[in-house]
């Protein structure tokens, strides 16, 4: 299944957002996720199904002003 993850194309076998994080080795504990412009909270990732062409954003704490 082809997805856009943080703006980059990926071909993955994961069917859920939770599985996608594991497959792409996003191992950080402090991640925020969004699917097609909508927030997906941490506990909701396991049941968040992915579809062809979905856009996933995976963000993490950074320096800011």
């Amino acid at each position: 299944m082809k997805l856009l993850v943080n703006g980059e194309p990926h071909d993955v076998s994961a069917q859920s957002l939770d599985a996608l994080l594991a497959e792409l080795e996003f191992e950080g504990e402090w991640l925020a996720t969004a699917l097609n412009g909508e927030l997906v909270r941490s506990p909701e990732r396991q049941n968040c199904r992915l579809d062809e062409g979905d856009r996933v954003e995976i963000l993490t704490p950074r320096q800011g002003g």
Binding site: V5, N6, G7, L24, E25, F26, E27, G28, E29, W30, L31, A32, E57, I58, L59, T60, P61, R62, Q63, G64, G65
Partner: peptide, 22 residues
């Protein structure tokens, strides 16, 4: 202190390191 959110790299943990410091 102010902080932001930015895209994480696959396999990266830079966010975790920064956030632990803060």
């Amino acid at each position: 202190v102010t902080v932001s959110l930015r895209r994480e790299m696959a396999g990266g943990k830079s966010g975790d390191k920064f956030w632990s410091l803060i």
